[in-house]
Design a protein around this nucleic acid. Structure first.
Lengths: 225, 225
DNA sequence: AATAATCTTTATAAAATAATTACAGTACAA
DNA sequence: TTGTACTGTAATTATTTTATAAAGATTATT
């Protein structure tokens, strides 16, 4: 394998320097971002093999950045934080963080955790743009196109479509869709789905009475193709 | 998904009890081993979905157990330890541990790390496809094909076919089929079966008057081949 | 505060599926 | 041959599920 690339997102210069020296002397290529915004940009323009994310960033809460990244980035993200609160750790891990280290951390341990994360996350493929027939979604820019024309979707419509496209070809159950979009406790509100699938179809299907993309699997769920 | 099974390998009874209560109340099935040797045996005879391994075991060093497990076991192994030495952590991670927690640990954090570990180990099992002649079923995507063409099956038809394919070649009794698909109390409704086997045959058989796949075993049940 | 956009709920008609009935065919034994 | 038990299929009815519009409720925006 080539040199693995690691993106550091941290506002403290001395931490960045420390990390850079340690990582580079261990054969990694390092890219640095000093803010969450910058980090998101770098990650999108040239996806690294792993991201080290400081969760106590000033511009945007690190948790926001994490959620944002996880909408499309599926390689390891290791959180660094001065916070040692359990709530913080749990929420980060449940939002898709691969690991969580409390500052000050031991560099040997960090390096081992990086090796472990890269090892287990090897076979993941990702791209920020998914194309499926005449529908195209840019998960970073949050833009949806039909035949090169930009569609205007509401937040929920977008989330639903993104979920469909990430699971193209699979039948997604009502249960699953409701859990992913609306969260636990909404898993029986099948009617929400019907309404939003309906409005999505009006926007993405050529003829919404004969849907080619979102097909219904009666009694089970929906499938995107 | 079914209940995930977690194997605890720890010699301290109070830790085992604590873990058991917390894990079971979170929907996991728990198996306990009190020594490394026993743990290896359990793991081999019935591989769990995740292993919690105390690294300070008396009989064999936990590191040995870890190495031993990793020779064949590739699901998550989370280490629990009273040791907070960096060397210990690095060596465990480099020997294939998925994560390393220092006792006393916070149960909320442990649970989050378990969820994270199970989650990241999932995307490797992306397809469970059973092929049988010209019929193909993808149990994850919930899609059935005949000669590469996607068939449109109703929920009950799909369930029935999936059951047949999971038991290819075996004779399945009316009783069994009815119990599996319709549940207890329907085991005498043989007519349901006739109707649904009939409609399945129309969809999957080349000539449904001369079924090649779903063969009837008169007086007993049906067999898929 | 007023307006617009979006989400949540309700109501209802249409469509799809499942359950039930009826009946014809088939194999086998008395 | 006749009767019986079992099977397959078409047709009918019942039930469930889905699609859509539209009315309230909420949220965001100006």
């Amino acid at each position: 394998m080539n040199k693995a690339e690691i993106l550091i997102i941290d506002d403290e210069p001395q931490i960045r320097k420390l990390l850079q020296i340690n990582l580079e002397s261990n054969g990694y290529k390092v890219i640095q971002a000093t803010s969450g915004k910058e980090g998101l940009m770098f990650a999108a323009s040239h996806p690294p093999d792993l991201i080290l994310l400081d969760i106590g960033l000033p511009d945007k809460s690190g948790h926001e950045i994490l959620k944002n990244l996880r909408e499309w980035y599926n390689k390891p993200i290791i959180i660094l934080s001065v916070q040692d609160s359990e709530g913080d750790i749990v929420s980060a891990l449940d939002n898709g963080a691969t690991d969580y280290l409390t500052k000050p951390f031991r560099t040997g341990e960090l390096l081992a955790r990086i090796r472990s994360a890269i090892r287990s996350g090897q076979n993941t493929e990702n791209s920020a743009v998914i194309v499926c027939g005449n529908i195209e979604i840019d998960l970073v820019a949050r833009i949806v196109k039909r035949d090169a024309e930009i569609l205007k979707l509401t937040a929920t419509e977008y989330n639903l479509l993104a979920l469909f496209l990430k699971n193209e070809g699979k039948v997604l159950t009502h249960h699953f869709l409701l859990k992913e979009i609306w969260g636990y406790g909404y898993q029986t509100e099948t009617q929400y789905l019907r309404v939003f699938v309906g409005s999505l179809r009006k926007k993405i299907e050529i003829n919404h009475n004969n849907p080619q993309h979102i097909v219904t699997e009666s009694g089970v769920g929906y499938r995107f193709q």
